[in-house]
């Protein structure tokens, strides 16, 4: 009774399961500002959706979830449009470069090895650092010892380099004054990595904004969703046109759950402190890292796989 046929995926799914899946990932999206592709695609494959259709349809649903999430964060004043646009331009340039890099690696014959290792290092490094850093932050806030005012801290080398860069500009929403070259550069780097790893890059972009662009966590979430929205619009149209792998019925079912999940997630995010948000996202990233590492170390049940998955 609750089954629905997906014409492009060529399989039937339980409506409530897919709705629930969308809701769960949408919730994470609203809380952390990540697209959730790195979680949703493997989950869909688990439910019998071909890898290529899962990835393309997920992009389609992220368009809906990030629209809903961006709107909610916009109302809360958490979207830095200027920063988002610069990161987006960098991301498009980086994505184009990344596609060429992956072509070159494939021709050299060791692309899969590099992709897997990049994945684990990135997830482990980013997740581990975020976890440690936010744990320190949480410890400090719970410490009852009186706060002793210290002498003004010496400016770090990183901050001095940032101040020396040209095209300094004030980003009102983020409350930072930095060179416009910086978001363009980091956007490009994340774009390259995202193209190599075959993901949207939200889980790399969020730590970049927090640690390297020094944006407040709540503005990071809103701005990340704003940028993801445009990235996924592009991916959905490209996938539909080139590979015919967008299953609109699947995307719509996921959407119903994820748009609601994203709204709830935004409310949850508002109630959590920056460090609490960071430690939760770090735990999630580390969990995916451990799962990937286990997949690389444990003998697979079947020693061949369809092309198109990771």
């Amino acid at each position: 009774m609750w089954q629905m046929y997906l014409p492009i995926a060529g399989n039937s799914v339980n409506i409530l399961t897919i709705f629930g899946l969308g809701g769960f990932v949408g919730l994470l999206s609203g809380i952390f500002g990540v697209g959730g592709g790195f979680l949703m695609t493997p989950l869909l494959i688990m439910f019998g959706i071909p890898a290529t259709v899962a990835a393309a349809s997920d992009s389609n649903q992220i368009v809906g979830a990030s629209t809903s999430g961006t709107l909610a964060h916009w109302r809360l004043g958490n979207v830095d449009v200027k920063m988002g646009v610069l990161l987006l331009i960098g991301g498009i340039v980086g994505g184009t470069v990344g596609v060429q890099v992956i072509k070159l690696l494939r021709a050299m014959g060791n692309a899969d090895f590099l992709i897997s290792v990049t994945y684990v290092i990135m997830l482990g490094g980013v997740g581990g650092y975020m976890f440690w850093e936010s744990l320190q932050g949480l410890k400090k806030t719970t410490d009852d010892a009186p706060v002793v005012k210290s002498a003004p801290q010496k400016e770090s080398t990183y901050a001095r380099i940032l101040n020396m860069l040209p095209l300094q500009s004030k980003f009102e929403k983020s409350g930072v004054t930095i060179s416009m070259v910086l978001p363009l550069f980091f956007g490009t780097m994340v774009g390259v990595l995202a193209a190599i790893m075959g993901v949207g890059g939200g889980f790399i972009m969020v730590p970049v904004m927090v640690y390297l662009l020094r944006m407040p966590m709540h503005v990071v979430v809103g701005t990340s969703l704003f940028q993801i929205l445009f990235t996924c619009v592009n991916v959905t149209i490209m996938q539909a046109n080139s590979n015919h792998t967008v299953d609109f019925v699947l995307a719509l079912l996921l959407l119903l759950g994820s748009t609601i999940g994203a709204q709830v997630g935004t409310k949850v995010s508002k109630k959590l402190k920056g460090d609490q948000l960071k430690i939760l996202l770090a735990s999630l990233v580390l969990l995916v890292c451990v799962k990937m590492l286990a997949g690389l170390l444990m003998t697979p049940d079947i020693l061949i796989a369809m092309k198109g998955g990771h």
Binding site: N60, Q61, V63, G64, A65, S66, T67, S68, G69, L71, A72, V233, T236, I237, M238, Q239, A240, N241, V246, F248, A251, L252, L255, L256, T259, I260, A262, Q263
Partner: peptide, 18 residues
Amino acid sequence: FFGVMAVLIAIGAGLFTG
């Protein structure tokens, strides 16, 4: 057309829920 339609409906659904 299919891709654009899928995107517009997704945006519409996102805005509607918002």
